[in-house]
Amino acid sequence: MHIIVCVKQVPDTKIIKINPKTNTLDRRSAPAILNPYDAHAVQEAVKIKQLTGGTVSVLSMGPPQAVSIIKKSIEIGADKGYLISDRAFAGADTLATSYALSKALERISEEQKIDMVICGKHAIDGDTGQVGPGIARRLDMPPVTNVIEVTEVKTEERKINLKRKQLGGYEEIEAQLPCLLTVEKEVNEIEYAPMPNMIKAARYEPVVWTVDDLGEVDRSQLGLKGSPTVVGKMFTPPRRAGGKKLEGTIDEQVKELTGLLREKQDLFRFNVNS
């Protein structure tokens, strides 16, 4: 079983700051981390490998510094890492990103056939969730998005059983291998990295490829050129006709508020539990 996990280096959006003057992202303000959903994707691949045997590889597209998230993936238990890094990839939207990654996946599959691709549900810097399903289309694999549980891997039958999050619940799905999954955080808990993994990660150097290493590539589909979407403008959202800030001491404000809420009694009904 050869499982490949696509991982992305992202700024930690919890910490990132926006420059209020220019409305742009101050990238220096945020540490770069392994996208949290991708960490779960790597963990799930490692869990599956423990059952079926095989290899877990990770693939990332990004600047040379993205090596750090490949090392992080090795810590979690991945065996091998690939980084595609080239100016030609810069400025890619989701369509151009899925193209570049699928080209790298094709190249990897020449070395070792791929049985499963796992991606995080989305990256926390873009929040789109579009790259995973895009890769699935390009590699002609059935996609199963929003996976919350890998229930059973049937290696003999070349099938996998999954739970997929849905509106108002979940559905149980059987998919043929090879397939592509995108995983939610609920899919597993990230385990503490065993010491040998840490040591391996510290010394690990991933395979780094440029565009030229990917074989036949249509350069017009890469990076900014290959991206149908562009950011038109950035703006702070229209402000709602402001509210009323209450005045006085906290006690006075609390009294005024509960009084105001009583006036809206037609709206809702409280059942106060004492």
Binding site: D93, T94, T128, G129, P133, G134, P228, T229
Partner: peptide
């Protein structure tokens, strides 16, 4: 989201999430 991502890839068009 799943459907739109797949369709956008096949139609080679832009998709905003």
């Amino acid at each position: 989201k799943d459907l739109a991502s797949a369709v956008a890839t096949d139609l080679s068009t832009g998709l905003t999430a």
